[in-house]
C-alpha cells in the first residue's frame, strides 16, 4: 500500500514543518516546549508506522522508550521553567 505511505509522509511532513516553525518563531520558551511536546508525540506515532514500512517489530520497542523519554523531558523542562520566575 504505497499510496498510504505517500499520504502519511506528506501530511506528517507538513505537521512536523509547522511544529518546527513554531520552535523557531515561538516568542517564549513555553511555546517552544509546547511545540516540542507535539513533535515528540508525532514522532512516536511515526516510529510505530516505520515498523510497518520496514516490516521489523523492533521499532515498537524503540517507540515505547522514545515516548517514555519524551514525557520525562517535557515534565523536567516544565519544572525547570516553573522554578525560574
Amino acid at each position: 500500500m504505497s499510496v498510504v505511505n505517500y499520504i502519511y509522509f506528506i501530511l506528517v511532513g507538513f505537521g512536523v514543518l509547522f511544529s518546527f516553525l513554531r520552535i523557531l518563531l515561538g516568542p517564549t520558551s513555553a511555546d517552544r516546549v509546547a511545540a516540542l511536546d507535539t513533535l515528540n508525540v508525532v514522532l512516536t506515532g511515526t516510529i510505530v508506522f516505520l515498523a510497518l514500512v520496514f516490516n521489523n517489530g523492533l521499532y515498537l520497542d524503540i517507540a515505547l522508550v522514545y515516548g517514555l523519554l519524551s514525557f520525562i523531558e517535557t515534565v523536567v523542562i516544565s519544572r525547570f521553567l516553573e522554578g525560574k520566575k
Binding site: M1, V4, I7, Y8, L11, V12, F14, G15, V16, L17, F18, S19, L21, R22, A34, A35, T38, V41, V42, G45, F49
Partner: peptide, 19 residues
Amino acid sequence: YFLIAFGAFFYFLGGLGIL
C-alpha cells in the same frame, strides 16, 4: 490503512494548530 491515513490528517491538524 484507513485508520493510519485518518491519524496522519490529525497529526497535520495538530501542527497547524500549534502554528
